[in-house]
């Protein structure tokens, strides 16, 4: 019975955001046209970051991204001059154009080569790495260019806002945000029954998982399905640590029949990922009632720290949910 008001509020919210986004976009594009004037590049503004209030150029031209800031920045259309290492496994999930942008930037190595950063002559450095790692290079980076830092505990939406603010990409962010909110509202409506009545569980496996084990995870893309769409995934008991993930041996696959729907990681084509494949190959999985009834869904998660990749995740989730027997 709570759904209706919720949905109503969601729709109102979406409308409000959409309209404000439109206004902002309009303003943004106005600003854009003036941006190219050479005089603007000396202007600065102050942004709030994890390392305090930092004065950054209003329109930074040479941005170096360190740690997790690279992909969100590129996702909003940013073109960094220097980036730190990204695993091939993560890079292969990027859309063509973003990958090209990434590869055009100078690679700074996994441990940041500070001299290389300096030689790129950046006018802004954006960093998201562990606090202890940042402390080691904070002064050196500051000597090169204005440096904005966010800790690993910064939530992805907040990080996107902050990167957009510092990197002068606010219009792109607003467009993405509007798309996202619209998409979420739409899915909430389409799957209201599923949201209400279905018990989900999300499985995963990581490259460093022990052989013969899988995990029940509530971190990663599933956070969006859980928090924003409202699907019913198991949560940690109140007061306890967040579940994050629990590692379980394959024997425990049999116990999964208590859930209505299983989600597991798949590639863009919907096939189980290479790391997860050993789970799907077990006889126990094949015999599982949930699997046999078509209630196990492979969902593609291209990343969960930028609007663009999360939108691609929602597409995949939408496609998967549409195949549920309950929906047909």
């Amino acid at each position: 019975m709570t759904t209706t008001p919720l949905r109503g509020r969601g729709a109102a919210l979406t409308a409000a955001i959409l309209s404000s986004a439109l206004v902002l976009t309009a303003c943004g594009s106005d600003g854009d046209s003036g941006d190219n004037a050479a005089g603007r590049s000396d202007e600065t503004h102050t942004v709030k970051a994890g390392n305090g209030d930092i004065k950054v150029p209003a329109a930074p031209q040479r941005v170096v991204t360190i740690g997790n800031t690279d992909l969100p920045f590129i996702d909003m259309g940013g073109k960094p001059v220097g980036v730190t290492g990204v695993d091939e496994s993560e890079l292969s999930l990027l859309p063509e154009g973003q990958r090209a942008t990434f590869e055009k930037a100078t690679e700074l190595g996994d441990e940041v080569d500070l001299e290389k950063v300096a030689s790129l002559k950046p006018d802004l450095i954006m960093v998201q790495i562990p606090d202890a790692e940042f402390q080691k290079i904070e002064d050196q980076l500051g000597a090169i260019a204005p440096t904005v830092f966010w800790g690993l505990d910064t939530e992805w939406k907040a990080l996107a806002e902050a990167i957009a603010e510092a990197g002068n990409l606010e219009d792109a962010l607003d467009r993405q945000k509007a798309d996202y909110e619209g998409r979420v509202a739409e899915m909430k409506q389409t799957y209201s029954d599923v949201i209400e009545n279905t018990r989900f569980v999300n499985l995963d496996r990581y490259a460093n998982s022990d052989p013969g084990t899988f995990v029940i995870a509530d971190i990663g893309c599933v956070e969006i399905a859980q928090d924003d769409i409202g699907l019913n995934f198991p949560k940690a008991a109140a007061g306890a640590d967040p579940l994050a993930y629990t590692s379980l041996p394959f024997e425990q696959i049999a116990e999964l029949s208590e859930y209505d729907v299983i989600t597991y990681p798949a590639d863009a084509e919907g096939q189980p990922t290479e790391v997860f494949a050993p789970v799907v190959q077990t006889n126990t999985w094949k015999e599982l009632s949930t699997v046999q009834s078509g209630n196990a869904l492979g969902v593609f998660c291209p990343g969960n720290n930028s609007y663009g990749s999360v939108l691609r995740y929602l597409d995949s989730l939408d496609t998967a949910l549409a195949t549920l027997p309950a929906e047909q």
Binding site: D110, A207, N208, D210, P211
Partner: peptide, 22 residues
């Protein structure tokens, strides 16, 4: 390993030594 995060990630599991899932 130290210059290839994917390899490092896979190797730390293999290095532990296990008789499961063989």
């Amino acid at each position: 390993e130290l210059t290839n995060p994917d390899a490092f990630d896979a190797m730390r599991s293999w290095n532990a030594g296990s008789i499961v899932s063989r």
